[in-house]
Nucleic acid binder design. Structure first.
Length: 295
DNA sequence: AAGAACTCCTGTTGGC
DNA sequence: TGCCAACAGGAGTTCT
């Protein structure tokens, strides 16, 4: 499942096909994903031209000619596949070996006429789609209360310190909390904490003073978060199990992981000599180097 | 009220 | 080889 860099990679793949195209038909192969589709979903989408495709955190936002936005989240295993206009119709139940995709999990199809077809596939169905008026999109339920955009101007040592000051929750949990910073997931939090030399179990408040001012680590961490995400986007995201680009190609940032999914392997820091450790925090794996990230 | 645990769902993997 | 528990990139809801 995709974190911010993977969602951005998907956005860049969809944009040239989707923007400017008209959704001639919306095929819903079931009545829900994680949640029910919005009321009269097909009706509200059919015939609409897509004005733009943007991203906020891990959400994709397609602005429609009607003034409504189509809001899409990929959950853990959601993916989009683009087919040329002349591609034959998919047969549900068939397995696509090349794309690693079960066709039985093709749930939503956007028919774009001469622009082709975009299919949403989601094995675990943790993804969802919704609609809201563009005018007050960021006041709508998915975005109201959402944290700062990690690649936006708001992310700085000052803001991180203000957000984390006094927090007893571990750094790992605070960085994953979408109400504080929106878009980070398990991979990039592990990688960022390693680069910052911060132990994931330390209370989040350690990067701030009692008055909420940034300690040096706050500035460092803010810069590292930006760097890790930027590098991952440049690499086309990370492909572990399910993630693929809209054309079926794969990301390669996973080769740049320093700790994620490297339990018991040697720490990459020259001369360190320690092994990457794995612990469980809030039910999720955390990977870190006990020497480079001392508690 | 904060923080942790549980939940949704399916598929893959690793240990016995 | 088969079986089964553990685990997977998210995040809303429910507990303590």
């Amino acid at each position: 499942m995709p974190e911010l860099p993977e969602v951005e990679t998907v956005r860049r793949g969809l944009e040239p096909v989707l923007v400017g195209a008209r959704i001639e038909r919306l095929v819903l192969r079931r009545k829900n994903l994680r949640f029910a589709f919005p009321d009269r979903f097909a009706e509200r989408v059919t015939g609409q031209q897509v004005k733009s495709l943007s991203r906020r955190a891990k959400y994709l936002i397609a602005e429609l000619g009607s003034g409504e936005a189509l809001i899409m989240h990929l959950g853990m295993t959601g993916r989009f596949i683009i087919d040329a206009p002349d591609a034959s119709a998919h047969e549900p139940g068939v397995f696509y070996a090349d794309a690693g995709r079960h066709l039985i999990h093709d749930h939503v199809v956007f028919e774009l006429g001469s622009a082709g077809r975009i299919t949403y596939n989601d094995v675990r169905r943790f993804g969802f789609m919704d609609m809201a008026p563009v005018a007050d999109l960021f006041q709508s339920k998915h975005f109201a209360g959402m944290g700062i955009e990690p690649l936006g101007n708001e992310l700085s040592g000052e803001t991180l310190a203000a957000l984390f000051a006094g927090k007893a929750a571990p750094l790992k949990a605070a960085l994953l909390d979408q109400r504080l910073i929106a878009g980070l997931g398990n991979i990039y939090v592990c990688e960022a904490l390693f680069r910052a030399g911060l132990n994931p179990e330390l209370p989040a408040g350690v990067i701030a003073t009692k008055t909420g001012r940034p300690r040096p680590k706050a500035h460092e961490l803010a810069g590292i978060i930006r760097d890790v995400l930027t590098e991952a986007i440049a690499a086309g995201g990370s492909t572990l199990r399910d993630f693929a680009h809209t054309d079926g190609s794969l990301g390669y940032f996973q080769h740049a992981f320093k700790v994620y999914d490297r339990e018991s392997e040697d720490c990459v820091t020259p001369g360190c000599g320690s092994k990457v450790d794995r612990i469980v925090q809030s039910g999720r794996s955390t990977f870190f180097c006990p020497s480079c990230q001392p508690g």
